[in-house]
């Protein structure tokens, strides 16, 4: 069982972000989402990005995942320069290395759980079978259900299975429990933590719920487009111990 420790820190960061800024044009308003973020992330670590809504954490996550590009600054993942606006290499990066979990699941409504996972395994290089992935999140009994036939927690677990089925190096989760009640949220976090533990996937979870910080190796506090501070959890707890 791989567990995150000092060794990983010594092997060098997997993500290196320097001076990241991002400005959005929202209608007639300009929004400065990131104002110069420096951050390193290491292989296999479990990071929670904590901050109020609008603090820029989703923007950072999107840039790390190759869903968006920074306005200025640099960000690298291994050999990929994520600050370049190159659609083909971004597509390749997402396809090979990244798994996403979104707040609203973003399942394809016309596909069953199994098919939603297959959507990704069919284009991945060394994937699990959809059945394995769904078993990992405890949904082996619900594989042929459509999203509308499942609860929110179940849908989010399908989304996690879909994200990890390709065996990504990185798992990026944007408010994965935001739309769920506490009990279901804990179950979902437990799955995410297990994936991090068992597959050694570098995991970044965004939340504005400070309680969740307890399950991380490191907690990055966000505020107003900047990293406010970074804390290391000396006593990491398991997801099942969380309460809110």
């Amino acid at each position: 069982m791989a567990h995150f420790g000092q060794n990983n820190l010594r092997s060098g960061p997997i993500f290196v972000a320097r001076g990241l800024t991002k400005v959005y044009q929202m209608g007639q308003v300009q929004v400065q989402a990131l104002r110069g973020v420096d951050l390193d992330l290491y292989p296999g670590e479990f990071v929670v990005l904590l901050g109020p809504s609008g603090s820029g954490k989703s923007t950072l996550l999107n840039i790390l995942g190759g869903l968006d590009t920074p306005t200025s600054g640099s960000v690298r993942y291994a050999d990929y320069d994520l600050s370049l606006d190159d659609d083909a290499s971004m597509t390749q990066y997402r396809r090979s290395h990244v798994g996403f979990v979104f707040q609203f699941y973003n399942l394809i409504p016309s596909l069953t759980a199994r098919e939603n996972v297959a959507l990704v395994t069919e284009i991945a290089e060394n994937p699990m079978t959809p059945e394995e992935a769904l078993a990992l999140v405890g949904l082996e009994q619900r594989m042929d259900h459509f999203p509308t036939q499942m609860s929110g927690g179940e849908q989010q677990r399908v989304a996690i299975a879909r994200a990890v089925a390709k065996r990504p190096q990185v798992l990026l989760c944007d408010e994965p429990t935001g739309a769920l009640d506490a009990q279901t949220g804990v179950m979902v976090l437990d799955v995410i933590a297990r994936v991090n533990r068992e597959l050694g996937t570098t995991t970044v979870v965004i939340t504005h719920n400070a309680v969740i910080a307890g399950i991380a190796d490191r907690v990055v506090y966000f505020g107003d487009g900047l990293v406010a501070r970074i804390e290391r959890n000396e006593h990491k707890i398991s997801a099942t111990e969380l309460q809110w």
Partner: peptide, 16 residues
Amino acid sequence: REQVATLKAFGYSNIA
């Protein structure tokens, strides 16, 4: 639009 984005997020290329 949203489904296009989701497919792309999982690594489907524009052409696909």
